[in-house]
Simulated assay, not measured.
Amino acid sequence: MDERIQSLTVSIQGIVTDIMGPLRRKSINEPAFARLYAAMEEAELLIREEQQIDRQLAAQLFQVYSQLVTQSGYVYDKSLFVPHIGKMQGMIRKIFGSTLQNV
């Protein structure tokens, strides 16, 4: 695996840790999500032409997305969660390829 991708994956792992604690308390860590989105943009650029994507990176992104969806089900006011769910979904599609949009 490319060193830059490996470094980015480690960076994303730290960001995910910053997101998950508050998320489990039904709270959104906006600065951490901003860092995650920036890292996801960089990841998309780095792996755009790759045929395989690091499993750990995919698992981390899926973990955040699935927890967003899960935790939003436990709150009355979903307005904090919905924009992040949509943005994560769009960025994951962008990273993993546009073919997912046809599923």
Rank of each mutant, 00 (worst) to 15 (best):
M1P: 09
E3F: 11
E3W: 07
R4Q: 12
I5C: 08
Q6S: 12
T9A: 03
I12P: 01
Q13M: 04
G14E: 13
I15N: 07
V16C: 10
D18C: 09
M20E: 13
M20H: 09
P22M: 03
K26D: 07
S27H: 11
A32E: 00
A32V: 01
F33L: 11
F33E: 00
A34K: 15
A39S: 08
E41S: 12
A43E: 04
E44A: 12
L46W: 02
R48S: 06
E49D: 13
E50N: 11
Q56V: 02
L57D: 02
A59M: 08
Q63F: 07
Q63H: 08
V64T: 07
Y65L: 14
Y65Q: 15
S66W: 12
S66D: 13
Q67T: 08
Q67W: 05
L68C: 06
L68G: 03
V69Y: 09
T70L: 05
S72V: 11
G73Y: 01
Y74V: 03
Y74L: 06
Y76R: 14
D77I: 09
D77L: 11
K78Q: 15
F81S: 01
F81V: 03
V82A: 13
H84G: 02
H84Q: 07
I85P: 03
K87C: 06
Q89A: 11
G90M: 12
M91K: 14
T99P: 02
V103C: 07
